[in-house]
């Protein structure tokens, strides 16, 4: 599905140049569930942002569905992203001024989906993540676990084939964290590719492969036996 060849990302400020990713080579196939681990500052989030096309690599190749998209402009990336990739963040990133239902619907607004279909799909996905009874509530009225479920619903409502999760359980207690992990696992079993950054070995255990990063480089890859 995607392949990174010698991919590097350098952040530059006036005085400091930081090498966040250093010649990374990773291949991810359709239907995988990968966990990316490593200490703070090792480049996990940078990697996820680049994979999610929220950021551009400084050098190297990024093949997505047999297309080298490194260096594509924002509009093109945005187009590919919205058709293929859903995001889940540690801090949920729900929009405070919109209700649960509207937050999920937001993901469909930028797709060509009619209002009636939008409604239907939002209802379906809310059922799926078990948040339908909270449809009219504002994010501030929900618990963290509920908020993250909304975020998951938002990530998948557009039928995205891949979900990128950036520490999805980082702000949750263990019970809620567990809940979210099970939800992701279920999605993966239904065919969604999932790439997740996490600090928790227990949660990484849900993944079939664990990629360990250190100082911007892939140090080990552990694949669980099927």
């Amino acid at each position: 599905m995607l392949k990174l060849n010698n991919l590097s990302r350098i952040y530059q400020t006036d005085e400091v140049e930081t090498l966040a990713l250093n010649e990374v080579n990773i291949e991810i196939d359709k239907g995988e569930f990968d966990a990316i681990m490593g200490p703070s500052g090792c480049g996990k989030s940078t990697l996820l942002n680049i994979v999610g096309m929220l950021d551009n690599p400084s050098s190297g190749e990024y093949w997505f569905n047999n297309e080298n998209i490194a260096g594509y402009n924002e509009a093109k990336l945005s187009d590919i992203r919205k058709k293929n990739i859903g995001f889940i963040f540690q801090n949920f990133n729900l929009i405070d001024e919109l209700t649960v239902q509207e937050n999920i619907e937001l993901a469909l607004l930028y797709h060509d989906v009619s209002a009636s279909e939008r409604k239907q799909r939002v209802a379906e996905v809310m059922d799926k993540v078990g948040i339908a009874h909270r449809a009219k509530h504002m994010p501030s009225q929900l618990s963290g676990g509920q908020q993250q479920r909304v975020a998951v619903a938002r990530a998948v409502v557009g039928n995205q084939s891949m979900i990128l999760a950036d520490e999805p359980t980082g702000n949750l207690d263990s019970a809620h964290g567990q809940e979210v992990m099970q939800m992701l696992q279920k999605l993966n079993q239904e065919g969604t590719t999932i790439v997740m950054v996490t600090h928790s070995p227990a949660h990484a255990d849900y993944a079939r492969r664990t990629i360990n990063l250190f100082d911007g480089q892939v140090v080990t890859e552990n694949v669980k036996a099927a």
Binding site: L54, A75, S78, N93, A107, Y110, R154, G158
Partner: peptide
């Protein structure tokens, strides 16, 4: 900014 970023993540173009 967060709202803007989220909209862009969800596929909004700059023009939108």
């Amino acid at each position: 900014a967060r709202e803007v970023a989220m909209r862009k993540v969800l596929g909004a173009s700059r023009m939108q």
